[in-house]
Nucleic acid binder design. Structure first.
Lengths: 218, 218
DNA sequence: GTAAAAAGTTAGATTAGACTAACAAATTAG
DNA sequence: CTAATTTGTTAGTCTAATCTAACTTTTTAC
């Protein structure tokens, strides 16, 4: 069994490897808001437990074991988020912090039960895939909305950034997963998009926003 | 905000004061399975935070503040147990360990939501009262089954011991809260009771068991 | 009412996980 | 290609919560 702190290092390493490929001590230090010497010493400790392949001055890499453990924590996080939204009525902007804590609960039964009650969900409330019990997970081949062209019709599939602020912004525009959106035009100057959906005839979305929305073409 | 460790000391102090009136360092040490010197030093630390009134060689006492904090943790524990049983389908023998962890979650919203979804329950799945949001709680005037006499009819109101083993024993005899029981006879020698309920015509319950069952006379 | 036992305290060590200061290696810029 | 900058490591300190060993106070037994 791993400590709460180790679990957080695992999650961070896993997430950063996804986002930026290779992970430096500096990246991890910034992401966790923990000073570099502390990170170095934790990496040595986790290397001793075969969770991380650590060599001085080299990029950090999770071992297969580390990846699996990380994925299982992410599984618990995402199942919890889904449970909170679907079964308890929380908004998608409210669940991150709660799930951040519940993911560390030591009780396979609790998560098995959530999984059953949710009927084995494949995605969390932000569209991220929920790893299976073996830690296997796959992102579908979504596009960023920002990469789409005027005239295309797409369906909202996932959000990349899950900060409260961003999700509240989406709420205020009634943008949610599954929503069908037509791209009316793209401003060449700053890449702002004008889109149409539901009762929103011409909603304009900045490039910053469009970069954080993943869609499926329909 | 208190640490997980402090919260556990608070809960233990609260529970022991209920059970055995005054609490010694030794009692607390045994209950928490933590050595006495550690307990002494934690008591000093918690005294500095005004949670405990500590004087060398004197019995330990929670302050009003300490009692309220303890009751609020117990509130979270019991709400969680009720939620797990009522909304997730766990058995009353399965929920203690999970609630023991979830009670430390920092999210007033989570517990408010449980309370709402459960429609403001007054008792947990073992019949123990759930403190209100101000930490107020009251045990009803129940009797131990062991104190009842042959011929009396009673209703199961609560269980004192909530160990898995004891609850599984009750499950095996189909004894649950609300059950109406008639006391057929009491063996004078060892106080074993013969009782009748549902399809159980003459179930015999040891004194040890009867001591742990709280009932209301009907 | 003293002696033995039990309970409680003090002092000092340990571990996990954090930090700062100082130094070393690697990368980047001119 | 060297110098400056950035990144990473080492060494040593700190805090929370634990422990053991040794000592003191209180309680219990006779």
């Amino acid at each position: 069994m791993y400590s709460l702190v180790e679990e957080n290092y695992l999650k961070a390493l896993f997430a950063l490897s996804k986002d930026i490929g290779s992970v430096s001590v500096n990246d991890l230090s910034k992401h966790l808001d923990i000073k570099m010497p502390t990170v170095t010493s934790m990496m040595k400790k986790m290397a001793a437990k075969k969770l991380v392949a650590y060599e001085s001055y080299k990029p950090l890499k999770l071992t297969e074991k580390g990846k699996k453990e990380a994925a299982l924590i992410i599984r618990k996080h995402r199942l919890t988020e889904m449970y909170l939204v679907e079964k308890m009525g929380f908004g998608w902007e409210e669940v991150h912090n709660i799930a951040e804590q519940i993911e560390h609960i030591k009780s396979p039964e609790l998560f098995t039960k959530m999984d059953e009650l949710l009927d084995y969900p494949k995605f969390d409330p932000h569209g991220a895939p929920i790893p299976d019990i073996n830690g296997e997970m796959e992102w579908k081949a979504y596009s960023k909305l920002s990469e789409c062209k005027a005239g295309e019709k797409v369906r909202m599939a996932a959000v990349i950034n899950t900060s409260d602020g961003f999700l509240e912004f989406l709420n205020s525009r009634e943008i949610r997963l599954g929503l069908k959106i037509k791209i009316m035009s793209v401003e060449p100057f700053d890449n702002t998009m004008v889109v149409r959906y539901k009762k929103h005839d011409q909603e304009s979305l900045s490039h910053t926003v469009c970069e954080r929305l993943l869609v499926e073409k329909v």
